[in-house]
């Protein structure tokens, strides 16, 4: 199977400091890869560098075979990459409908506004409300809906469960699970290991800006001592 994303020897950081120190990571079409790692490992920086929001020092970012390292963010976005950012970042002064309208594409085939509302009826109910009047869970739904309307081939999910109550995490998990049959590939950064294991086909672990482990979720799950060593958790 071909890869949607192939990152090779990617180096990036802020104002000269190095956060990503030679990252190699590939994501096969249609599969979910969990990207795990301690706080400050560089996971968000990785997402932002793929998205073009942080400019890489060197390395390669291939999206569906096209070199996009250092490309403008809108170019990456138009190549079929969408991000659900850490902290959700919905447009606070805009209504739910406007938030979604900004992401909707003309001539959308798979992800129309109707379909997003159908999938997340809560958003339909609140379509006239401002982004900052939503609960955390609703904002997360909105951020996911916004990304889906871009009709992405690759979804970058940065801690979608962060700050959500367990019941709401479950809703988000169901929602994301439902995407697996849609041919969308995803990189999922997640602190909630249960959620990561439930959704991901493979697990990659980042440490100090490098990928130090990569393998099927089941193997990683089975070897608790290694998981503990890599993540510092049980």
């Amino acid at each position: 199977m071909t890869d949607v994303l192939t990152v090779a020897d990617l180096r990036a950081g802020y104002a000269g400091s190095t956060v990503l120190d030679g990252v190699d990571l590939s994501v096969p079409a249609g599969s979910f890869v969990a990207l795990l790692g301690r706080n400050g490992a560089g996971k968000t920086t990785f997402m932002h560098t793929v998205m073009g929001l942080v400019k890489p020092y060197s390395g390669s970012v291939l999206v569906a075979g096209r070199e996009l390292a250092g490309a403008a963010t809108h170019t990456v976005a138009r190549s079929g990459v969408a991000i659900v950012p850490q902290g959700r970042r919905v447009f606070a002064p805009l209504t739910v409908a406007e938030n979604l309208g900004l992401a909707a594409r003309r001539g959308a085939r798979t992800w129309t506004l109707e379909r997003v509302y159908e999938l997340m009826p809560r958003l339909a109910e609140r379509r006239g409300h401002r982004g900052d009047q939503l609960s955390g869970g609703e904002q997360q739904m909105l951020a996911i809906g916004r990304a889906l309307l871009r009709e992405p081939r690759l979804l970058l999910l940065d801690e979608p469960s962060d700050g959500l109550a367990p019941a709401v995490v479950d809703q988000v998990a169901e929602l994301l699970e439902g995407l697996r049959g849609e041919g969308i590939a995803a990189v999922l950064v997640e602190q909630d290991l249960h959620l990561a294991f439930r959704l991901a086909d493979e697990v990659a672990v980042m440490q100090k800006g490098r990928i130090v482990h990569r393998g099927p979720t089941a193997d990683f799950r089975a070897d608790r001592t290694r998981a503990h060593a890599l993540l510092g958790v049980g």
């Binding site: 073009g52 929001l53 963010t73 976005a77 447009f91």
Partner: peptide, 8 residues
């Protein structure tokens, strides 16, 4: 930045 990420 979010607008850029949406392709604008």
């Amino acid at each position: 930045a979010r607008m850029r990420a949406l392709g604008y």
